[in-house]
């Protein structure tokens, strides 16, 4: 007998945990849950069993739009020739440098 019933399938969610206050949320993994509240609780039990976080975000996986490998060139390469966006591009007097 195989389980062909789909009425008992819970959708997939992505979990983001914040390791410490002040830090950004990071992707921790995914899980299945029937709704938001259970997703949040399951995330707590699955990805924060060892005090890994102070805050949790959950979002149903289908709501995430991701860039594709084909986007890699047009999305990210152009930034390579814009050194003026990076602080190393600018020179600062020695005395100031030491203090920062």
């Amino acid at each position: 007998m195989s389980d062909t019933n789909n009425k008992d399938n819970w959708p997939l969610w992505e979990v983001f945990t914040q390791p410490k206050s002040g830090k950004p949320h990071e992707h921790a993994g995914s899980l299945h849950a029937a709704d938001e509240e259970m997703a949040l609780q399951n995330a707590r039990d699955t990805y924060a069993r060892r005090n890994e976080g102070v805050s949790i975000w959950v979002v149903e996986s289908k709501h995430i739009t991701a860039s594709t490998p084909e986007d890699m060139g047009p999305f990210f390469d152009p930034a390579n020739d814009k050194p003026y966006r990076h602080p190393q591009f600018y020179s600062v007097p020695r005395a100031v440098k030491k203090r920062s």
Binding site: N5, D8, N9, W10, A34, D35, M38
Partner: peptide, 14 residues
């Protein structure tokens, strides 16, 4: 198999 009714209930509630 014993968990099926539980999983279904959660889906139906949602």
């Amino acid at each position: 198999e014993n968990g099926e009714w539980v999983r279904e209930a959660a889906v139906e509630y949602a």
